[in-house]
Design a protein around this nucleic acid. Structure first.
Lengths: 198, 198
DNA sequence: ACGCCCTATGCAACGGGTTGCATTGCAACT
DNA sequence: AGTTGCAATGCAACCCGTTGCATAGGGCGT
């Protein structure tokens, strides 16, 4: 149950309404944690009932009313408890891998298109991450992590940067792997054609 | 709904009983797709009802009876359809990232232990993958993908190798990232100590 | 003889994520 | 004037994965 705690962290970084959270989860945060607004509202209600967060209604003059949530002391305790609680790393579960192994028994042409699509999607994400990096963490790239030198980040931003770095690393990895897999599929297709039309 | 199709691929590679599938999903396949035996039995029933697979009961003399499933023509069609069907690459959803960002507001000591645990887990998986690579794909490492040279793999095994390669790549990436994050957390902790006890 | 583990299959309850739909009000375009 | 679009919140149904439990026979150790 990690959406609860993702929301706690988001609210600690900045108290917000459900709507704002939903938009942040479609943008910056959404790059490493995804959630719909329905989910977010449901979890916010539950957390308010449990006293982890408290709401203050902001009457909107031109816009509808907003319920702005902040994390309570109880919520902070819960977050610390959860962070220290050990969790096993999740096993991979990617449909592409299944499709690749399945390609041995059928359609490989459709899979090539699919892989090209994934390659493009990962390239887009990588670009988006690089834009964020340049915008928010320029100059901190080569600084020693958490150190005190010039261009050093405060802990909060250094940790955010570390999360972004995982995104950069994995999108780069995906990209290279997609290229490799596409090369393989094309070779297989070519070999098949050679065999059928000699 | 990809477990269905993962099972179809597994059954095409080798017709099996639910129990065998569950064990394979705990071993080789499980490294890139995880499922429990309860899930597997339920999905097998459904797929049998839909005519994607058919069962043959093997009466065991010393062991209990086994229902061995094979993929039907209808099942093959469904698999091809699904492979060609475009799917968006899934957004990341990793609790570690949330914990990292959350560490700015509380417990960083517990998180260090957690990261060390993850680092060890990923190192273990990497080792396991390398064992599989050496056992099943020795000699194919540097061969051109899908080519005809010496040490070339047939398409089925070449595709399996490509899946394994993604595992190798990502576990390696995780490992390096864990090291980097641990370095950062230790630096933050040290800087905090300096500030509190000058 | 008793308990324990392994093979082999399955049901039932719960929980979280996904999808679809609903409502209210203002602003802006056609 | 009517329609589209956005801000803002929420309910309800469904699907899938997780967790816990059940059963039934055979081999093996003490």
């Amino acid at each position: 149950m990690a959406l609860d705690h993702a929301l706690l962290v988001s609210l600690l970084e900045k108290p917000s309404s459900g709507y704002e959270l939903a938009r942040r989860f479609d943008r910056s945060i959404g790059y490493f944690w995804h959630a719909t607004h329905q989910q977010i509202y449901r979890v916010l209600s539950r957390m308010e009932a449990e006293g982890w967060i408290s709401a203050k209604v902001q009457a909107g003059e031109t816009a509808p009313d907003r319920k702005v949530f902040s994390v309570t002391a109880k919520g902070r305790v819960e977050l610390s408890r959860w962070i220290a609680e050990p969790v096993e790393p999740e096993g991979t579960r990617d449909a592409l891998m299944v499709k690749l192994r399945g390609a041995a028994f059928g359609d490989s042409q459709g899979l090539i298109a699919e892989l090209e699509h994934h390659r493009a999607a990962h390239a887009n994400r990588l670009t988006a991450y690089r834009v964020i990096e340049a915008r928010d963490f320029a100059g901190a790239r080569s600084a020693s992590p958490g150190g005190q030198g010039p261009g050093a980040l405060d802990p909060q931003r250094a940790l955010q940067y570390m999360v972004l770095k995982s995104g950069l690393r994995f999108e780069q990895g995906w990209l290279e792997w997609c290229e490799e897999a596409l090369g393989l599929l094309r070779n297989i297709k070519q070999a098949k054609r050679k065999r059928t039309t000699p």
